[in-house]
Design a protein around this nucleic acid. Structure first.
Lengths: 222, 222
DNA sequence: GAAATGTTTTAAGCATATCTTAAGAGTCAG
DNA sequence: CTGACTCTTAAGATATGCTTAAAACATTTC
């Protein structure tokens, strides 16, 4: 994992470099905004630690320009300030998190890990009528009663909910849930839709998962 | 909150004691390295303030020996020096932070609070049905009968309990308990789950640790 | 430094849950 | 009414997890 630190105080810079390298991150550093920006644009980093006040170009400006270049690398602000206004500026500029000096190294590590976690910004919970799907913990509830689903059942339900309100064609379902990318005529989907409706307790009146004849299925509120 | 100050200059020592006691910390003091080390090993403090230069045993040595004894209490160095080299020594010795003399009392308070933050909220005891896990003393009980677990068994149980009620995916388990961060197909987890269930005396009816086929495991009340 | 003890990991056979197929029953649209 | 599409069911194929034993590795003891 590669980390870029943009920070002008040598003490803090070295403290961070040392600590992060011991955690086996690969660390690059810059001591002013211009150099930092250049490096962020040139190389692919996994996280950028960005000081708020920098000589040359302020942290906010650097952040904004990194985002303007279309780079989505997580940026964590290191800031001595603490007013609501400042953090708002930082987050508007496209930062993902900020940490107030002085901070403990453990705390910084925690925040870096949070940013590195895959899908950190991704939606995790979906709802459909009385049904709640938590993709993180892989659990499904109906009226806060857990319903056990198998892998494929869960995958199919998740796909339908990620496309809630849109018709899902059979070919798209087979592609996404079964990972089959060629013409394939099969009845598996029907079997699983059937199983889902049963387990979720859906009836004729409560048809949250509807059949679109000749096309596919749709999950929607009724 | 208990603070140990190891500092040989009486002026600074009294200044600190006075101020910290007013903030309602409970303060113990030592005026040389040997005494300080002894106290740090004998009593449970929440923070140690450690002067860099001490008669008897230097601050770095004291710090190193505290860590060697397995004590994780946050240590803040009080130092007149400021070279990169010195702070590096200090942090390598296991310190959590350092503060340069002369410092404002406010600043010191801030840093103490930072060090207390991550530990203060941490949960130490977990329960699961008749099972109690104490992460501090590294002990596990079932109906107040101690159960001896190995390192890995304990680590796995602790991870499951820290995520009690949530499904733990195999990849997360391997990452957190085994510290393996790449794709790794193995049966170790199964073996350890098996061992845990045996030692904890879990049965079909008492399945506090359930397997979620194709995903992982979940610890939850039944 | 070797033996003894304890822990962690690997691997293989077995049991069982899950997935897929296929076939008959049911449903809808023209 | 008829043909195309979908639903339902059950049985065979596959994948996953459980259990065990032994190998690899670590730690303690003499």
């Amino acid at each position: 994992m590669r980390i870029l630190i943009i920070e002008d105080e040598p003490g803090i810079l070295n403290f961070l470099r040392q600590g992060l390298e011991e955690e086996s991150y690969s660390v690059d550093t810059a001591t002013n905004g211009l150099d930092g920006l250049e490096m962020a644009l040139a190389e692919a980093y996994d996280v950028v630690l960005l000081d708020w006040m920098l000589p040359g170009k302020s942290g906010v400006e650097v952040c904004r320009e990194i985002r303007r270049a279309g780079i989505k690398t997580p940026i964590i602000f290191l800031t001595a300030r603490d007013t609501v206004q400042d953090t708002v500026f930082g987050l508007q500029a496209g930062a993902n998190d900020y940490i107030k000096k002085p901070f403990s190294f453990e705390e910084l590590l925690e925040r870096i890990k949070v940013q590195l976690r895959p899908h950190s910004g991704e939606q995790v919970e979906f709802r459909l009528g009385p049904i709640v799907v938590d993709t993180q913990s892989h659990q499904v509830f109906r009226d806060s009663q857990e319903i056990k689903l198998t892998q494929k059942e869960f995958g199919l339900l998740e796909f339908l909910l990620r496309n809630k309100g849109k018709v899902c064609r059979r070919t798209r379902i087979i592609e996404s849930v079964w990972d089959i990318h060629f013409e394939y005529n099969t009845g598996v989907i029907d079997v699983y839709i059937n199983s889902l409706r049963k387990k979720l307790g859906l009836t004729k009146e409560e048809d949250y998962i509807q059949t679109i004849r000749g096309v596919g299925y749709i999950a929607k509120e009724i």
